[in-house]
Design a protein around this nucleic acid. Structure first.
Length: 444
RNA sequence: GCCGCGGUAGUAUAGCCUGGCUAGUAUGCGGGCCUGUCAAGCCCGUGACCCGGGUUCAAAUCCCGGCCGCGGCGCCA
């Protein structure tokens, strides 16, 4: 490794480092050339620092090297850290400057202010876009969310699992999957770890979680869908009801909100995006049943959704507004979805089989989590399949899991990119993905 | 899949409605001046109307088709 210090560390320890020799490596962010004196602003992942060169003071070799610099050249600079009237309060008086590489053509996109460019341009030249600290902070934040997820569920006694992404059958009826040529067979990219996280619970791991990619072959054209995204999945056995699952989901979001207040990386990202940690009332995230939601929509918003139908996007925003106004909450659970709109493995409500033990969680008006209790009784599962008009033979491998003792269980799937999007107030989910895959885009 | 909106230098935009352009501005890029800048400044230069057809004396501008992009619905996280 090159001997260098992160700029952020130098700046935060500037008092003790003043007068000593430091080396930093990074990109040339700005060049301010006044003729006999030149100021370079260098950037690495951790921050900015000014490097100063003066004719007659700086060694000739370094002055020569600086002649060829352009924006986004990659350099290493050594010199004395000195007090200066810069934003950081210090600058490096250059003693040596080494150019590691320079752009071979004009920049198609300037990192500074790249977020003002059109999204397709940003995605085409994503390596330049992400050099913009505001943009890279999105991915540092994403890593933070995944870390909190992993730490929270690990602490709650969940085991991290790694399920196959190459599968023989889709998970849910009607959902589109990508076919893949697997030797001489056609198989599919997993559109959910659903079956395998249940497998792990039934296999005796009891409480499991997974962070992994899922693939959806839906040709949607919206600002909140990707054809490849990351699912934060949990599945837990020996539950008494789907409330237990919601409690685990709520626990995670409480932890996330709390750590967004404390964590340095998260705070930096939120500051860059003008975002605030989500509000969760002390009494808990409000929970309304679907039938209560219909009533709220009718009475407060004069919007009628027929009994047994799903909420549309507008209705979700209205329910979110209700949660905000009534409970000062950025989240709300909608529960007991109609059987009609839920997949076959969902447990139907006892005595009211047209409704289910399931829920969605809305975060600032967008669905970010779906979950519920699963049907663990073999015979009921068969009935469910038939009720959906599905052929049990196509799901026999899955049904077999339930033949030899399956505890009552449930779980949830959360969209990582959507959580990032809603937390930072991004306007397009593609911004929450380093290299998004959508209906047209598979490069870079 | 259906529907709607949009394509002007590398990037971001003005002009389009109401046809008259030698297509303006900022930034980048190339060159020059400048010893304390911090979005440095100043001067010179460079570079664009998505493609095809139509209307017209005249099309960036109006019409039609194509291509590309965007996002609303549906579906979902």
């Amino acid at each position: 490794m090159l001997k260098r210090s992160f700029i952020g560390e130098i700046v935060s320890e500037k008092e003790s480092l003043k007068g000593s020799r430091v080396t930093v490596c990074g990109w040339v962010h700005r060049i301010r050339d006044l003729g006999r004196v030149k100021f370079l602003v260098l950037r690495d992942r951790t921050g900015f620092i000014q490097a100063t060169l003066k004719a007659g003071v700086t060694p000739e070799e370094a002055l020569q090297a600086a002649e060829d610099l352009r924006l986004e050249s990659v350099v290493c600079v050594s010199g004395l850290l000195s007090e200066a009237p810069t934003k950081e309060g210090v600058e490096i008086k250059v003693e040596s400057l080494k150019v590691l590489s320079s752009p071979v053509e004009p920049l198609p996109l300037e990192p500074e202010g790249s977020e003002k460019a059109a999204l397709p341009v940003r995605l085409k030249y994503r390596w330049l876009d992400i050099r913009n600290p505001k943009v890279s902070s999105v991915f540092e934040f994403e890593a933070f969310v995944a870390r909190v997820f992993r730490e929270y569920y690990t602490r709650e006694g969940f085991v991290e699992i790694f399920t196959p992404k190459i599968v023989a059958a889709g998970t849910e009826s009607g959902a589109e999957v990508f076919p893949v040529l697997y030797f001489d067979k056609t198989v599919y990219l997993a559109q959910s770890p659903q079956f395998y996280k249940q497998f792990a619970v039934i296999a005796g791991l009891e409480r499991v979680f997974e962070i992994g990619p899922v693939f959806r072959a839906e040709p949607h054209h919206t600002a909140r869908h990707l054809n490849e995204y990351h699912s934060l999945d949990i599945e837990v056995g020996f539950i008494e009801g789907y409330d237990d699952v919601m409690n685990y989901v709520e626990g995670f979001f409480r932890e996330l909100a709390k750590r967004m207040e404390e964590d340095e990386v998260a705070r930096k990202a939120m500051e860059a995006h003008g975002a605030e940690p989500p509000r969760i009332p002390a009494s808990g995230i409000p929970r309304v049943t679907m039938r209560e939601a219909y009533e709220i929509l009718r009475e407060r918003f004069h919007k009628v959704i027929p009994e047994g139908e799903d909420l549309d996007g507008e209705a979700e925003k209205m329910i979110a507004a209700y949660a905000h106004e009534e409970y000062d909450s950025d989240f709300i659970f909608v529960t007991e979805y109609p059987w009609k709109v839920r997949p076959f493995y969902t447990m139907r409500k006892s005595g009211e089989p047209e409704w289910t033990y399931s829920f969605d969680l809305l975060y600032r008006g967008l669905e970010v989590v779906t979950g519920g209790q699963r049907e663990h009784r073999y015979n009921k599962l068969l009935e469910n399949l038939k009720s959906k008009g599905l052929d049990p033979r196509s799901f026999q491998f899955y049904l077999d899991f339930f033949k030899h003792g399956a505890p009552p269980h449930g779980g949830a799937g959360m969209g990582l990119e959507r959580i990032v999007m809603q937390s930072l107030g991004l306007s397009n989910i593609r911004e929450a993905r380093m290299l998004p895959r959508d209906t047209e885009r598979v490069m870079p």
